[in-house]
Design a binder for these strands. Structure first.
Length: 512
DNA sequence: TTCCGACAGTGGGGTCGCAAT
DNA sequence: ATTGCGACCCCACTATCGGAA
C-alpha cells in the first residue's frame, strides 16, 4: 500500500465532522489492506507511530523540504525509514536524523508531507484516533466493535489485533485475553467536585471510598519469580523500580496482575511530593543511588488476575476480596466501604474519611461502585475521583494565539500575581475552562489591551482579572516566585475587580 | 425529542537523558 | 557547564456526534 492512500484517507477523515463517515472512510481503506501491512496502516490512521520513540519532533520537522511531484513511497518503506531514524544515537545523531528525515520528506508529495508532519509530531487533527480506528476495523471485518475494543485493551496493541482480524476474521478475537506479562490498559476515573456529588453520581449501590495517592500508576505482573512493571501508557519500567519488584515477589501467589500507585514516604510516613517521586521514577542511570536517596513504596488497589484466574469481569467487591487475601495491609490503599451511600450518617463518615486522607497529606479520594467490573481502557462512570480545588484572582499579562480549532483566537493566558511595587510575577499559563464564547470575548478584549504582538504572543496592559482554579502549587525554576500552579484552569473573568485588587504573590506563597 | 456517554482536541508544568553548544 | 529537544509522568476542560432514554 502506498503512503498516498493513507494520506488521502486521512484527509477524507478530517474533512467530515460525522463520526459515521470517518468510520466508513477508515473501513474502506482497511478492506484494501494486506494483513502483513495492517499493523502499520492502522496505527498511522489512529494518528500514532508504531515506534514508541523516534527522536524526531516538531523542531526537526519544521524546516521546509521540497516535495516530490508524484507519490511513490510505500507504507512499509516509510515504516522502515522511521525504524532507522529511531535507531540513530551517539555523536552526530541530530545530523543523521535530519538527513534521514530530509530523504523521507523529499520523496513525499505535498499531501504526504502534511500527513507525515502531523503523524510524527503527534498532531494529525483528523478527528479520529484509536477509538474510531477500532470502529473502522470492526466495520471492515464484520466483527462486533465491542469485541474488537476488548481485544485491543487486553492485547495491548491495535496493530496485532488488526493483523489477526484481517488474516482470520472475527474468530481471531477470542485469542486476545488477559495474559500475565502482557499489560492491559488501566481503568481511569471521572471527577466530581466533592464526595457528595460523587456519591450522587454513583447511585444507590454500595461503594468503596479509597485514598487517592499522588504518585505514578503502575500495573505489576508477576509470573513465578518473573515480574514486569508497566506505566499507565504501558511503558515497561521494571528496571527502575526494584522496590516494587521485591514487593511483588513477597506476595503469596504464583501469578498475579496488580493495579496500584507508587509513592514515597518521609520518616514520619507522610507522602513526598509528586515532583520528587516523578524524579525518582524517571531516573534510569543510577538506580541504586536513586533508591538510597528516595526509596519507593508501592500501594495496590486492584487485582486483575491471580493464579490463572482472570478477575476483570468480577465486581470491585469480589476483586478487592481477592486483593485483600493475597496482599498485606500496608501494601493496600486505605478504604472505607459504604453500603448505603444515601444514609446521612454514612455520608458524614465518608466526608470525615476524605478529610482524614487530606490531613495525612494525600491527594484526595476515589469513590468506586462495588458492583462494577474492571473497565480496562475506560474512563468509566464507576470510579470517581475527588480532589480539593484552590482558586486565585490573577491578572492576564499576555496571551498566545491558539492552534487548530482555536486558530485566530487568543487562547493560552499568561497569569500573574501582584507584587507590592505594582508589578506582576508570572505564575504560569492556562488555556483550560474556556467556552467558545468566552474565547471570542477574551480575544476581543485582549486585543484592546494589546501593547505588542509578535504573531505568537500578544502582551497586554495588565488590567484584566481572571479567577483561576488549580490543584495546588509546585516548585518551579521557570517562574520568578519559585512556584507555579498545577492544572490551572479558568473559572470566570472578574470584571468587578481591578488589577490592583488581584491576589498577591504573598497570598500565593502562603498557600504552600 | 432530549439527554448523556464517549471521543477528540487544546494545550499546561516538571523531570529525565542525550547531544549540541 | 549549560541549553535545547524529545519523551513521558501528572492532567482539566469543552464541543460534538450519535445512540440511549
Amino acid at each position: 500500500m502506498l503512503l498516498a492512500d493513507i494520506a488521502r484517507t486521512s484527509r477524507e477523515v478530517a474533512a467530515t465532522p460525522a463520526r459515521s463517515e470517518k468510520i466508513a472512510a477508515l473501513a474502506l481503506l482497511f478492506r484494501r489492506t494486506e494483513p502483513h501491512e495492517a499493523p502499520v496502516v492502522i496505527t498511522y490512521l489512529a494518528g500514532r507511530l508504531p515506534q514508541r520513540r523516534t527522536g524526531v519532533g516538531w523542531s526537526t520537522l519544521r524546516e521546509h523540504r521540497e516535495p516530490a511531484a508524484e507519490p511513490g513511497l510505500t507504507v512499509l518503506e516509510v515504516h522502515e525509514t522511521l525504524d532507522r531514524i529511531a535507531a540513530v544515537s551517539g555523536k552526530g545523531a541530530a545530523t543523521e536524523r535530519t538527513r534521514l528525515v530530509d530523504g523521507l520528506m523529499t520523496a513525499a508529495t505535498e499531501e504526504e508531507q502534511r500527513f507525515l508532519f502531523g503523524l510524527i509530531a503527534g498532531e494529525l487533527r483528523q478527528g479520529a484516533l484509536d477509538a474510531l480506528a477500532i470502529e473502522g476495523l470492526a466495520a471492515a471485518t464484520g466483527a462486533a466493535p465491542e469485541d474488537v475494543r476488548r481485544a485491543v485493551m487486553l492485547g495491548g496493541s491495535l496493530g496485532a489485533v488488526a493483523e489477526a482480524l484481517l488474516s482470520y476474521g472475527p474468530e481471531a478475537l477470542t485469542g486476545f485475553r488477559l495474559e500475565v506479562g502482557r499489560p492491559v490498559l488501566p481503568m481511569l476515573a471521572q471527577s466530581a467536585k466533592d464526595v457528595d456529588e460523587a456519591l450522587d453520581q454513583l447511585g444507590p449501590g454500595a461503594v468503596a471510598v479509597e485514598e487517592k495517592l499522588d504518585g505514578i500508576r503502575v500495573q505489576v505482573h508477576r509470573d513465578g519469580d518473573d515480574v514486569r512493571i508497566y506505566t499507565r501508557t504501558l511503558d515497561d519500567i521494571t528496571d527502575r523500580l526494584p522496590e516494587v519488584l521485591a514487593a511483588a515477589r513477597e506476595l503469596s501467589v504464583e501469578s498475579a496482575v496488580l493495579d496500584g500507585e507508587v509513592i514515597a514516604l518521609d520518616t514520619e510516613g507522610r507522602p513526598r511530593s509528586f515532583q520528587e517521586i516523578s524524579s525518582r521514577v524517571g531516573s534510569r542511570l543510577d538506580i541504586a543511588g536513586a533508591q538510597q536517596t528516595l526509596p519507593l513504596f508501592p500501594v495496590f488497589f486492584d487485582l486483575l488476575a491471580v493464579d490463572g484466574r482472570d478477575l476483570l469481569a468480577l465486581s470491585t467487591r469480589e476483586r478487592h476480596a481477592e486483593l485483600a487475601r493475597v496482599t498485606p495491609e500496608p501494601r493496600r490503599v486505605r478504604r472505607l466501604v459504604a453500603d448505603d451511600p444515601n444514609d446521612p450518617e454514612t455520608r458524614r463518615a465518608v466526608r470525615e474519611f476524605a478529610a482524614d486522607v487530606l490531613a495525612r497529606g494525600h491527594e484526595g479520594v476515589v469513590v468506586k461502585s462495588l458492583d462494577a467490573p474492571y473497565g480496562a481502557g475506560r474512563r468509566g462512570a464507576s470510579w470517581i475521583k475527588v480532589k480539593p480545588v484552590h482558586t486565585l484572582d490573577l491578572v492576564v499579562l499576555a496571551a498566545e494565539w491558539g492552534h487548530g480549532r482555536r486558530t485566530g483566537k487568543l487562547s493560552n493566558l499568561h497569569l500573574g500575581a501582584r507584587r507590592p511595587d505594582g508589578t506582576f510575577a508570572m505564575l504560569g499559563k492556562t488555556f483550560k475552562g474556556l467556552t467558545d464564547s468566552l474565547l471570542a470575548w477574551q480575544t476581543e478584549r485582549l486585543r484592546e489591551l494589546a501593547v505588542s504582538d509578535d504573531g505568537w504572543l500578544v502582551r497586554v496592559r495588565p488590567e484584566l482579572v481572571v479567577e483561576v482554579a488549580f490543584d495546588g502549587l509546585q516548585r518551579s525554576s521557570r517562574y520568578p516566585a519559585g512556584v507555579t500552579l498545577r492544572f490551572a484552569r479558568v473559572l470566570r473573568y472578574r470584571e468587578d475587580k481591578t488589577a490592583g485588587e488581584a491576589d498577591t504573590v504573598e497570598t500565593v506563597l502562603a498557600m504552600r
